[in-house]
């Protein structure tokens, strides 16, 4: 089965980004070009320090690229906006608000009418199975519950693309597996566009339509893997295993470069 996804929604071409450091310019991203189609689930993998998070920040509009273009629906990205909500690794939920208020916050900013806000909040709370925790404060929730709230907060804004920056990294393995499964279920239901940054290849292959592998510094697109496995996928299926192995092999080469870099004297 092939994926008949919509037209290109997010298009990156020739994106470059460098940071000044004490030892001169650090090329974080070099000539990044790829696209994400409407309703597509794309995973971005690469060794740490390859600029995955920087790239996500550029797409989110939190930082500006030095050159190249990032187009969302044909329009250049200019500053952050609710059409590109980010789910951060640490959740970034507001501790002085209840779960419900956290989800409501962005809706209020978007000037959505109260009745509709209530409906949206309820709908997405239900989707993450936390409707009984609507009035809890964030510190009363477990790590996994917090990330679920962060996902609901992002989804409720119905962004054009949901950006996820290693959202399950701070969780233990069991919780992580649970959340990956929950995310898959949600996505299969609402079919929104997702760009998901992770360093876990198995997770990427299980979730994604395509996996974009970035190289170590400067981050370039090393290869884009189309994951042609039927859904729902079995995480233990030998075919999936094979795809994972293929990507991991290339990833390891990049990780080795990064390790070599780290051991080199400054």
């Amino acid at each position: 089965m092939t994926f008949q996804k919509g037209s290109s929604e997010l298009v990156l071409s020739g994106v470059q980004k460098a940071f000044p450091t004490r030892h001169g310019e650090l090329n974080a991203l070099k000539d990044i070009s790829f696209d994400v189609r409407e309703g597509e689930f794309v995973c971005l993998v690469g060794p740490s320090g390859c600029g995955k998070s920087t790239l996500l920040n550029l797409i989110a509009g939190l930082e500006k690229q030095d050159s190249g273009s990032i187009l969302l629906d044909g329009k250049p990205v200019n500053g952050p906006g609710p059409d590109r909500v980010v789910v951060f690794q640490e959740g970034a939920l507001f501790p002085w608000m209840t779960v419900e208020q956290n989800i409501d916050f962005g809706l209020k900013v978007k000037k959505i009418a109260a009745a509709e806000r209530r409906a949206l909040t309820e709908r997405y709370l239900k989707m993450i199975h936390l409707e009984n925790f609507a009035h809890s404060y964030i510190h009363e929730l477990s790590g996994g519950m917090r990330q679920r709230v962060a996902i609901a907060r992002g989804l409720a804004l119905e962004p054009r693309i949901l950006l996820m920056d290693e959202p399950f990294n701070a969780l233990d393995t069991q919780t992580r597996d649970l959340l990956v499964e929950e995310l898959r279920a949600i996505w299969s239901k609402i079919g929104n566009t997702v760009l998901f940054v992770t360093h876990n290849v198995r997770e990427a292959v299980y979730l994604a339509d395509r996996v974009v592998l970035l190289s170590f510094r400067p981050g370039r697109v090393r290869e884009i893997f189309k994951i042609d496995l039927p859904r729902p996928r079995d995480p233990d299926h030998p075919h999936l295993e094979e795809v994972v192995r293929g990507i991991v092999q290339q990833l390891h080469e990049e990780v080795e470069k990064s390790v070599a870099e780290e051991f080199r004297a400054p």
């Binding site: 952050p80 609710p82 507001f94 916050f105 900013v109 804004l157």
Partner: peptide, 16 residues
Amino acid sequence: PLYLKAARTMGAKGWH
């Protein structure tokens, strides 16, 4: 800064 980032990606500026 994470709170600010999160708020800004949800479109918040000024008063909000």
